[in-house]
């Protein structure tokens, strides 16, 4: 079996005259964290959405574990094990942390069309959900409505939900966004452990986190990948320094 889990080739997407994705080729390999960085408006979110299927590309293909997934809708891609978290926390606010995680378990495991048995008494849902809440460090907060969780806790809840989807790959869209230094440090440890579960395509602005976590980094500018390489290679790349990191990086 190949080591490439997610293979993106020649992806193109235009919105009118704007080329948001311009021939992007990128892969995600077993056991790695591949960080995707770039200035605001570089097309990172557009790229993520083409991988999840929320946006259809104009050209190019996305393959997942050797299978082209271009024709699949977001729900079908999620069921294959493509687990994503959102840039802005996307949870069900009136559900508790446990219920949110149960939803993810339900999506991965199937059996949605059961009408009579209470879900909260269904250990096929609650046991895995509790397990993943614990993995994300939220075990003590399972009964709290998601709307009452702190910002950092919501980001963790997203991680628990991504874990609950039996992921074969994670797409994490700015998991550190809006977190304090302390929270970001905690989350860095959690993400580092996650790569054992499944490889991570990490979109992130927090450079400390990226340099601490990434095995490889790709830099996206104006819809194009201008460089891909190890942390050292990217730090030393003159074009990256000029366009993104700044000369003093």
């Amino acid at each position: 079996m190949s080591d490439v889990i997610l293979d993106i080739r020649g992806l193109e997407k235009s919105f009118g005259a704007l080329k948001a994705t311009d021939g992007v080729t990128l892969d995600l390999r077993r056991g790695e964290i591949h960080a995707l960085i770039g200035p605001n408006g570089a097309g990172k979110s557009t790229l993520i959405k083409q991988i999840t299927g929320e946006i259809r590309q104009d050209a190019g293909t996305v393959s997942f574990e050797g299978q082209a997934i271009d024709a699949l809708d977001p729900a079908a891609r999620a069921r294959l094990g493509l687990a994503r978290s959102f840039q802005v926390s996307s949870i069900v606010p009136e559900f508790t942390a446990l219920e949110n995680t149960m939803l993810a378990v339900l999506g991965a495991g199937g059996g949605v069309f059961r009408f009579l048995r209470p879900a909260l008494a269904d250990r096929g849902l609650t046991d895995p959900a509790r397990f993943h809440l614990e993995q994300a460090g939220l075990a003590l907060r399972e009964r709290v409505p998601a709307s009452a969780l702190s910002h950092g806790e919501r980001r963790r809840l997203e991680i628990a939900m991504a874990l609950a989807m039996r992921p074969r790959a994670f797409l994490l869209d700015e998991p550190m966004a809006g977190m304090g230094a302390e929270g970001a440090k905690d989350l860095t440890v959690i993400l580092s452990d996650l790569r054992g579960e499944a490889p991570i395509l990490l979109v992130e602005h927090d450079m400390d986190a990226v340099f601490a976590l990434a095995d490889r980094i790709s830099v996206l500018v104006y819809g194009r990948i201008i460089a891909t390489g190890s942390v050292e290679e990217i730090r030393a790349n003159p074009e990256v320094r000029r366009t993104y990191l700044g000369e003093d990086a």
Binding site: T52, E54, D73, P74, A75, A76, A78, R79, R84, F86, S90, I91, V92, P93, E94, F95, E99, M102, L103, A104, L106, G107, A108, G111, V112, F113, R114, F115, L116, R117, P118, A119, L120, D122, L125, M161, M165
Partner: peptide, 27 residues
């Protein structure tokens, strides 16, 4: 019964956050 069931959980999630339900693999 229905609103407390698996189906009810997913249905109420779809009302509150459609995008999340799709990302969880449910239509």
């Amino acid at each position: 019964l229905v609103t407390r069931s698996r189906f009810g959980l997913a249905l109420q999630a779809a009302r509150a956050n459609r995008q999340r339900v799709m990302a969880s693999g449910i239509r």
